[in-house]
Design a binder for these strands. Sequence first.
DNA 1: TGCAAAATACCTCATTTGTGTTATTGATAA
DNA 2: TTATCAATAACACAAATGAGGTATTTTGCA
Lengths: 224, 224
Amino acid sequence: MPIRIAIVDDKSQNRILLSEQLGMSMNFNIVFVAKNGVDFLEKMKALDKKDLPQVVLMDIEMPEMDGIETVSTARLIYPGTNFLMLTVFDDDEKIFDAIKAGASGYLLKDEKTKIIEDYMQQLVEIGGIPMSPSIARKAMNMLVKSKTSASAVNASEEAAGHDLSDREVEVLKLLVNGYDYKVIAEKLFLSSHTVRKHIANIYSKLHVSSKAQVINLAFQKKWV
Amino acid sequence: MPIRIAIVDDKSQNRILLSEQLGMSMNFNIVFVAKNGVDFLEKMKALDKKDLPQVVLMDIEMPEMDGIETVSTARLIYPGTNFLMLTVFDDDEKIFDAIKAGASGYLLKDEKTKIIEDYMQQLVEIGGIPMSPSIARKAMNMLVKSKTSASAVNASEEAAGHDLSDREVEVLKLLVNGYDYKVIAEKLFLSSHTVRKHIANIYSKLHVSSKAQVINLAFQKKWV
DNA sequence: TGCAAAATACCTCATTTGTGTTATTGATAA
DNA sequence: TTATCAATAACACAAATGAGGTATTTTGCA
């Protein structure tokens, strides 16, 4: 059975090239071709569940809605679909963002079509993670950096992790636990004004701007 | 100025081979050679601070105290020292453990001496992260797996634990990620009214009554 | 002792959120 | 073929929140 794929690229010559080359193979069935993230999401929406592509070849650099943004939205809606990022730049930040967004692989655009085909087969059949060697190298740097810096930072500022005051930490804990301003104020014998001020300061120090974000941060950093 | 290095390997032939090859170069100064983790730590302790090795070539497979265990201890005591793991096996778990332990690089033992020299130079001078390509590939798999498995697992067993509809789950995920109503509506091509309705239904089904509570629940139940 | 930082308190304003309610459509189950 | 439910959309209102401020009191440290 051929693998259902979709191609997303803003440049028509890329779309044509890829779809012609892949379309020649009996192993692939090109469900649709889109020219940006919005176009892609609309076309996905119009499809019957059974016709959804198994693999999406997604260009990273696109106007309107880029590949990373698209993946981060689409993977939530279409958990059965794999997103294979195609990029001309092996840019550290882009790779990192793509990983966070939940892409299933990262290939340089100058990869041979045969390689891309193999990778897609592997992705669907074995669930492997295709990756161009040069990108793998960069991504690895980031992984190691993130692992070591997390602990390196820890080693030096250990207990800290943030520079919140004791009082702010107390407020934060209650906030994360789902109490609203009034309740927190009561629990800490403060006026609700003060609580609000503390929370404003916390947001500012942690560079977030909503309760949801701060709770996420707290869980991620294991402050809870 | 030559780079100060130490070599840790349980097999004497490896120690001799490496130290002879690296010792020939004027770029390296072999401070000491140790035959296991305990031996290494003792020799480090005996050294004057200014004589501490800048790079330690550490075999992973060793009796007594293996390379990973040694690194995880030593890096806390000697933050200025880089640990470059040498291994014959590009074993997934070993690599992962080494990363967690805080090694600065991972080379296969059959790497040419020239490569190892280059990597060490790079490590000290630029702070780069040397890594054999085949290991980088494996480690990358792990990184991506760890990032994507969260959602892959979600997709399969998310139904368990609650009786939310598919659409509600989508909304919930975005909500937990910190997006507000308007943004969620945009991302899902819905009116904000609908999103609000979904969220009200979610709250009702999950018996919560605020964003903070639902995010907590989501983290606790590992829906994220 | 005296300063700086933290904690406290109050104010206003626009926006977001939680909570009602109603209604239409499409798919599915009884 | 009803009956139900999920998904969609809309309206309204009170409460909570976020984003600006300013100002006073504690407190820790130099």
